[in-house]
Amino acid sequence: MNFSEFKELLGADPYSQDPAFLRARHQGGEFTEAATEADAFEQKLQQALAAPAPEGLAESIIGHVQQKPGHRIRTWQWAAAAGLFMALGAALVVNYQRYQFGSVEEYVLQHWQHDGVAIELQAAAPVSSERIRSVLTAVGASADEAIGGKIHYIKKCPTPDGKGAHMVVMTDSGPVTVIYMPKMDLDKAKHMSLESKQAYLIVMDRGSAALIGNSQADLQALEPMVRKHIKPVDELKT
């Protein structure tokens, strides 16, 4: 097996048990070097893909199936089942709607728990204005120069109804995460607690935004700045 063949097989099937491939792995030089590099990549890949399964998954599957044996059902059981079925149907409709549309609070909580802290920790220096423009344009918005130097992190993020933007804005009382959700509407501003942080959900000209900061942060005072500087693109044009 020459090196080119070895590299191809290594890229396609690093787990191959082909004897010639296994011999090549250990023959030293560029072969072993490539194999070591590939093994390190596979290890990272495996770790990233090993998402923890929900707790008790197997037992819930077993329980689910055990509830469905073909035992005889009496008339009263049919009646009870019909009532239960209707109640479940109603509950499912309600839950489906919740699932489909979600609430801003649910989304913010999930999003924050996922990567909020990690992102905040990485917000070290102001982001370039090109970067800000690129992300905000992608979500149909724009920011004026005044807020530019304060944004220390920005990326697009998925929201239940379309793309949003995740930013970290540096303030006198520390970093404040701003999650802009142009496709998620909110009736009115509201506070919510978020682990060790506080969050303030605000109504934007289009959609909504969540401001998340530490307990000292005056999030309400930040609202006008965020509302003033982050605008839907079509509004800025007019």
């Binding site: 998402a51 996922h114 990690a118 920790l121």
Partner: peptide, 27 residues
Amino acid sequence: KFTDIEYVVVADEPDATPDERTERHQI
């Protein structure tokens, strides 16, 4: 539900360092 899935939400991995968590997230 998500019209543009860019990442999968995975529960916290307390065994991983912040760098490892970031790296896994990027992968």
